[in-house]
Simulated scan of single mutants.
Amino acid sequence: MLDISKMKKLGLFAGGVLFGTAGIQVLSSKDARKVYTNCTAAVLRAKECVMKTATTVQENAEDILAEAKQINEDRAAQEAACVQEAETAEDAE
């Protein structure tokens, strides 16, 4: 009546239910709660570290951008002065 494959499937189902029930008990224990709390605290510390690093990188990028703009403005002013000197020299001749 009950062949081996049906017994095997029934055994696997019963084992799964037992494992699931035991797993729920383990996951809801006080020790597991401590692990979850410590893991969450570690993630929050990591987040804080990443945010500090991101802020530093952003500040550095803003400084670099400001310096680059200043360099371009200085270069444009020098080129304008050179062009003006060249025009003045041509007018003097």
Rank of each mutant, 00 (worst) to 15 (best):
I24F: 12
L12F: 08
S5M: 11
T55F: 09
T21C: 07
G15N: 09
G20L: 11
A80G: 03
A22W: 03
E90M: 07
V43L: 14
K34D: 12
E73N: 11
A89W: 10
C39L: 15
A54H: 07
V43D: 08
L65P: 00
L65W: 02
D63I: 10
L27Y: 13
E79Y: 09
E93W: 12
K9W: 05
I64P: 00
L12P: 00
Y36G: 05
A42C: 08
R33Y: 09
E90P: 01
M7V: 07
A86S: 14
V17Q: 02
L27A: 15
L44W: 06
T40N: 09
I71T: 03
K8Y: 14
A77C: 03
Q84V: 02
V26I: 03
G16N: 02
F19K: 11
A41M: 06
K8G: 04
A92K: 14
C49T: 13
L18G: 03
K69C: 01
V83W: 07
Q58E: 14
K47G: 04
T53I: 11
E62S: 07
F19R: 08
C39E: 10
M7K: 14
A14C: 04
V83E: 15
A92C: 05
A14I: 13
K69T: 09
A92P: 01
E59C: 05
A54G: 01
S28K: 08
A89C: 06
A68L: 10
A14D: 05
L2Y: 02
T21Q: 00
F13P: 00
Q70C: 01
A22D: 01
K34L: 11
C39F: 11
E87N: 10
A92N: 13
T55Q: 15
K69Y: 04
L18H: 04
A41H: 06
K34C: 01
M51L: 15
A81T: 08
I4F: 13
L2C: 01
E79W: 05
A14T: 08
G20D: 04
F19W: 06
A41R: 10
E73W: 07
M1F: 08
E62Q: 12
